[in-house]
Write a protein that binds this DNA or RNA. Structure first.
Lengths: 230, 230
DNA sequence: CAGTGGTCTAGACCACCGA
DNA sequence: CGGTGGTCTAGACCACTGG
């Protein structure tokens, strides 16, 4: 075998562990030991600690000093808060966007929505592809209004939500519904209807979590920290 | 000298560098080399890299691979975006707070405002003391509405703003004005006046940056990345 | 080229945890 | 007690940058 297309041990370790966490091979709550990983990948502690540090930053694992490192459980309250934050911010951003957008930009958005419609018909379609397009579109208003830093912060904070969405893949996602939302948002923007927009956006961003809730309580309860109040 | 009340080299290095950056002994844009720091503190690269990594996370330094590590300049656009985000989120949070707060909680807030008034009269008063109280008070609505995660995210994102505020100390801050704002916000909450609140809060959170702008353009221009458009 | 950070090793010793 | 992570050393070699 040709070896060494690796280039970076800590990155390899990081990617592998992350993939195993997202793929639920390492389940929320499970312990992972530094030394085990060292042996498994046949590397010293340095790259392993590097990888774990990155995973910790992103919230995939948590380390209890002198005790162990664990795959984090999902936290429904945090996910809800992130959505709340995103609704608050994005509503404002789109309102500003409405005031300054141009026909050229609106054409870009329309094009993006069309791409979304097209991609779900591809034969090698994967949900991940759709979510990339989704992100691109939502990024537009932040871009145009000069709020990319905010968009970055939201994205960084959203990792828990990303894992949540991975569970979603295991059930099913109604992409047609999402696209319909996008079209409604687009309409509101065209009509400069800020009040209607606020409603639609809120519904749109809250949608997946509301829909997933029953699935979760049945199939994934152990993957969550909290029981389901509020 | 008694040595070794240190406990943690990387922490010592981190604290010292951070303090030098906030105190402007290391000025924005200045280069700092890993090896220099190793010599200066007489430690190996590991704790130094650890410290630099933390500083980088918080945005105090930036590393250009194979080139050098530099104290970051402040970015006025980012600061403005963070304030924008905070206004958007905090307005929503306070509105929710208004709906669920109780007389007990309101008394807590009133008490906090009184403390603010009292502390600026102390003889050993420092601005930092005031800002601690200020943070405590703003945290209340996030706490009560179950949005502490959002508050954490905002705080983490606000480091640039913190450095900005340090410049503010070098000019002067009108604490009486801030307290007056707080009282107005408190009134709005009592009266459940959400519309008025949105206005006052926006003004309150935008205040320092607006006031500081002229000072900055004269005294601290070199500490900022960008010129001052928008 | 010399200097910087990027990465990694192979140890070492310590502090804390639970059984 | 043994296992875990927490920290650190003193090197090493590599990859890229700038002059």
């Amino acid at each position: 075998m040709s070896k060494s297309e690796t280039k970076n041990l800590s990155y390899v370790v990081y990617e592998e562990l992350k993939s195993e966490i997202l793929g639920l091979e390492l389940v929320p709550g499970q312990a992972i030991s530094e030394n085990e990983i060292c042996k498994k990948f046949n590397v010293s502690r340095t790259p392993v600690r590097d990888a774990l540090w990155r995973l910790q930053e992103q919230g995939f694992v948590a380390t209890m000093p002198y005790h162990g490192t664990y795959v984090t459980k999902l936290n429904m309250s945090e996910i809800k808060q992130l959505i709340y934050m995103r609704i608050a911010v994005e509503t404002n951003v789109i309102c500003d966007f409405i005031d300054i957008t141009t026909p050229m930009i609106l054409e870009d958005v329309r094009y993006m929505i069309r791409k979304q419609e097209a991609i779900i018909l591809e034969k090698d379609f994967t949900p991940e592809m759709f979510y990339q397009l989704d992100l691109q579109m939502h990024a537009v208003w932040f871009e145009v209004t000069g709020m990319m830093k905010i968009w970055e912060i939201i994205q960084d904070a959203q990792v828990h939500y990303t894992r949540f969405r991975k569970l979603d893949f295991e059930t099913e996602t109604n992409f047609a519904r999402i696209i319909k939302d996008h079209k409604r948002i687009f309409e509101m923007i065209q009509n400069k209807d800020k009040v209607g927009l606020a409603e639609v956006l809120k519904e749109h961003l809250s949608y997946s979590i509301e829909r997933m809730k029953p699935h979760i309580e049945i199939n994934y309860k152990d993957y969550f920290e909290d029981s389901f109040e509020a």
